[in-house]
Design a binder for these strands. Structure first.
Lengths: 226, 226
DNA sequence: CCGGTTCGTTCAGGTAAGGTTCAGGTCTTC
DNA sequence: GAAGACCTGAACCTTACCTGAACGAACCGG
């Protein structure tokens, strides 16, 4: 965990840096808004602690710039007691949390844990098979970067195949996962949809294993990257 | 945006509920820990405001249970002044933010905006999707710089869509986040509002994914800038 | 208290997207 | 070369979705 501490008061800075290091964070220190902005732009921090009353450029401006540039690092703001209207503008500039001086170090640490935890909770599983990618969260798929237009069933079919790629999937297994119990067992819809899917993602990507089922796999020359 | 307010003080509850409703949130109220836990388990809230001093089950326990069950909804905790050691245990139980009574309603609203924003994965306060912009703090939206005249529900609908743009949102998800518990599940208001929204922001911006829901996205030629 | 406006909701008819079916055609295997 | 497994184009038909219009509750100024 790497943290940027933007704070001008030397005493407070030293004390905070010590506490944070003790807690296992790696801490960079910026004594003014200019350096804070520069460091925040260039280094990949997991979290930023930002004092609002910084020399050269004030905290809110720094924060606004970062957000305008698309930076999403969680930011915790520090300010003097009673300036609660600052809080509102700070939050609306894109801050994720706020703390009023003086504060207990314990509380700062707790808030940091909460921030980092939440920021890390954005792991989205993206399914990849050669040039084919499928994003379950967005319900979207693409082949070689080109977005695919899939119908609901085509999508579900592809999804299932991608989750079990390189394995042979029987028609009955597919039916069982795509439909509810009562489904005409001797229907050829699966075949039809295999045909349609093949047209959209490329024939060779779905191999048919006669008598057993189908197998989704990357093309021969496609390295299994991610 | 749908919120659960878990607070036992009747006066404060009433006042907060009014303020939150005014700010455009849909609010469910739980007067004790038992009901809070139940509601939080069953309904999909965008955020939860949790008083620590609740009857029946105290706030920290409720929160701990939710987190143990894997619930990730952002939670903002309320407590009486000076009980700052509560804060630490509150945060470590999985709270995302903390507010000490008494507080300014403004500040609560600002913190809520920040929480909801972050939970949706947006660090910046201004929502942008192609030519459509929405400013949550001014409750204003525009398309290609032209301000939009939106009714309350149209606005909330657009807001939710913009927070989850490029993702398919099911009708039920929308209903659950725009209305409180008792709402006629087989009503077509969502469709009607989709129609009205489309008329105002442009038909092609909202794609309907048959059988799944809707997806808000930039137009083809609109670069995903900021 | 009353007409007018605004908005959310309901309803009914229309449309077309997308799933299923079917009838051949093609390929495999023995 | 026959039989069975698989492919495929086109037709069918269900139903999700769209849309215009009307209803009714809430609000507002007079």
């Amino acid at each position: 965990m790497r943290i940027l501490l933007a704070e001008d008061d030397p005493d407070l800075s030293r004390q905070l840096k010590a506490s944070l290091s003790d807690a296992g964070y790696v801490v960079d220190h910026a004594p003014d808004g200019e350096e804070a902005h520069f460091l925040g732009d260039t280094e990949p921090y997991d979290c930023i602690i930002l004092d609002l009353g910084l020399p050269k450029i004030d905290g809110v401006s720094v924060l606004e710039r970062w957000r305008r540039e698309g930076k999403t690092t969680p930011v915790l703001i520090l300010t003097a007691r009673g300036a609660w209207s600052d809080k509102v503008s700070g939050f609306d500039a894109g801050a994720d949390d706020y703390l009023t001086k003086p504060f207990h170090t314990e509380e700062l640490l707790a808030r940091l844990r909460a921030l980092v935890r939440r920021a890390a909770g954005h792991a989205q599983p993206m399914l990849v098979c050669g040039g084919v990618r499928l994003d379950p969260r967005a319900a979207r798929a693409s082949v070689n970067g080109e977005p695919l237009r899939l119908t609901s069933l085509e999508y579900r079919l592809l999804h299932y195949l991608m989750m079990h790629q390189n394995r042979v999937i029987s028609r009955t297994e597919l039916v069982e996962h795509l439909y509810d119990q009562d489904f005409d067992r001797d229907s050829n819809t699966i075949e039809v949809f295999m045909g349609r899917l093949r047209k959209k993602i490329g024939n060779e990507r779905i191999e048919t294993v006669r008598g057993l089922g189908y197998r989704l796999k990357p093309l021969h020359d496609e390295v299994s990257d991610l």
